[in-house]
């Protein structure tokens, strides 16, 4: 199993570059403004290559007004280095890169596309009365789907990202059977992605000059329910489920609630750790060490 550390900011690269791991991910799965500009991208690639690590560029959903810029950036990066991985969270970007004949060797579908019903904190409640077969079918990863696999064959897709969830063992095995590498995000489950950035709104920050505002997560717990008419106090059942989240930029996350020892590492090819989710580099190192011990 390989280890990947994601940095959402150029300045953070030096914090992690000398740690023991395999892949550096640059960019963010939620925000296009976290992609480096061309000069910074070139510099980062040089540093990552010098550290003998692999490079992954992470791209989010790309609104219409940013699409051309991102296509041009990827074109330049692909000229700069042949061996890089790219995470795609937008089918339009995938289509545009193919149309432009940009040669990509390793394309990974990110978790704004690769989803499971299990991503929802209360999925068990929603599926409470369904037959076991239906339940299993619904929580299956949506990329373990032969018609999609056939379609994606023309797009050099060789890996799928997924949340670390308790009941995805069969899904990971299916993805492996489909010929994909499975890249799993450690500890934090992506719950929802937005185009209207909640963090920028909270800080009343101007986009795109807001990048420093989301370097660390905002932790939160639901204390009021909006039922379209008024705010209500959460019931004891809601409190039991405990909707607790953290927000990084425009992406909402929740904690993985299971034990690390319950994770079946057999079908996981890459374990991804997002530096922004850790208090400091020591905590990040500890997490890697812990995974290595268990895996």
């Amino acid at each position: 199993m390989k280890y990947e550390i994601r940095v959402r900011d150029y300045e953070k690269l030096s914090d992690i570059i000398d740690l023991e791991f395999d892949i550096v991910g640059i960019g963010d799965e939620g925000c296009v403004h976290k992609l480096p500009n061309i000069e910074i991208a070139k510099d980062m690639i040089k540093k990552i290559k010098n550290a003998r690590k692999m490079i992954r560029i992470i791209t989010p959903k790309i609104p219409e007004r940013h699409l051309r810029r991102v296509v041009e950036l990827i074109k330049i990066i692909s000229n700069e280095t042949e061996e890089f991985w790219i995470t795609i969270n937008d089918l339009g970007l995938l289509y545009a890169l193919k149309k432009e004949k940009i040669e990509l060797k390793h394309v990974t579908i990110g978790r704004a596309i690769s989803r499971s019903f299990e991503d929802c904190l209360w999925y068990e409640h929603i599926l409470r009365d369904e037959d076991e077969f239906v339940k299993d079918a619904i929580i299956q990863n949506n990329m373990a789907h032969k018609v999609k696999i056939d379609f994606f064959k023309d797009y050099q897709i060789d890996a799928i990202e997924s949340n670390m969830l308790e009941h995805q063992e069969k899904a990971f095995a299916n993805l492996k059977n489909c010929g994909y590498k499975v890249c799993v995000h450690y500890g934090y489950i992506a719950v929802a992605f937005s185009r209207a950035c909640q963090t920028a709104k909270y800080y009343k920050a101007e986009i795109p000059d807001c990048k420093a505002k989301c370097s660390k997560p905002i932790h939160m717990t639901m204390t009021g329910i909006w039922d379209r008419k008024e705010y209500l106090k959460p019931s004891s059942k809601v409190e039991e489920i405990n909707p607790t989240y953290n927000l990084i930029g425009c992406v909402l996350y929740r904690d993985y609630l299971g034990e690390l020892s319950a994770v079946k590492f057999t079908n996981i090819d890459v374990m991804i750790l997002n530096y922004s989710q850790f208090e400091n580099v020591l905590k990040l190192e500890q997490a890697i060490r812990k995974i290595r011990e268990v895996a």
Partner: peptide
């Protein structure tokens, strides 16, 4: 994945509009 209108018996309301 903040599911609502999904035949839930627990009232989560519209979770993105809740108070946190």
């Amino acid at each position: 994945s903040l599911y609502h209108h999904a035949n839930e018996e627990i009232n989560f309301g519209l979770p993105c509009r809740g108070i946190y």
